[in-house]
Nucleic acid binder design. Structure first.
Lengths: 141, 141
DNA sequence: GAGGAATTCGAGAAATATATATAAATCAGA
DNA sequence: TCTGATTTATATATATTTCTCGAATTCCTC
């Protein structure tokens, strides 16, 4: 299951994408509307900023704005950034590959084969869904 | 990513399935061959026993044995038992459904729609792969 | 049938890591 | 000078992983 951080990140970004034009959205607006703990949200948005998903503006009229068009920000990218690899085991992760400690032969490992299929399926869905793929309604997850 | 517990569970069960006939396999044999921490493995196997996946026999010549044919024990069942729901968010879990705290309208939630697709894909793979689907080689994950 | 050896069972403890959340102090822009 | 992001620190809770110790159970041998 995803951690709270990832879910908050998704909700915050969707909110920004919807509110979004040129004017940045202040944290208080996001936290207020989506009912997210404000200070916790700050940390998450900072991570997203460092990851190049959003950009921030200080001072009056400041806040957060998508760093790219919503259509170019995928669910997969967001989850990888906040949560970590989509893969269920390190040896099938593309973004954070790591050989298993006691693996005898990766190419013949049954577990790996299954997990690789799962990863590829998951990735193809999440990487092909962007913040632009949203309906009018409000969200929560 | 799966926790260590789940990976150990999978490896242990595959080992049992392979060694397996009528005679139970002692923990020490599993821990030794698969290089798993023995006492930690005990706890995991106990969970699997309570979940009805394996059965245990005490005393000399004791150990663990699959409670059902390997073909009737799926990866999905094992992971759900040890790790928890396959779903990435509670509101799309079949085994442990829970409505999201601040959800406005589940049927129109974009996040939910995507996560549901991912869950269904993942579940169909993991639930249709059993301990019987293994090659001759030894495994590690 | 009594004793010893192998083995699971169960309760804790403990060290470590991660997740979640809050608070205070600081910095930069309008 | 005000607003809001940034940074740093702290608190709390929960999960993970591993280890220790002491049982209870069953088989085997004498």
């Amino acid at each position: 299951m995803l951690t709270q951080r990832s879910r908050y990140a998704l909700r915050a970004l969707i909110f920004i994408a919807r509110s979004g034009g040129i004017a940045p959205v202040p944290i208080s607006a996001i936290a207020g509307d989506q009912k997210l703990p404000r200070k916790f949200l700050e940390i998450i948005l900072l991570d997203l900023k460092n990851g190049g998903v959003v950009e921030s503006f200080r001072g009056k009229m400041g806040g957060y704005r998508l760093a790219r068009p919503a259509s170019q920000i995928s669910f997969g990218e967001i989850i990888r950034m906040i949560e970590g690899p989509l893969a269920l085991v390190p040896c099938v992760s593309v973004s954070a590959y790591q050989r298993c400690a006691d693996c005898f032969e990766e190419t013949t490992c049954v577990i790996r084969k299954v997990m690789l299929t799962v990863r590829d399926n998951t990735a193809s869905i999440l990487d092909n869904t962007s913040l632009a793929d949203l309906s009018i309604e409000r969200e929560a997850a």
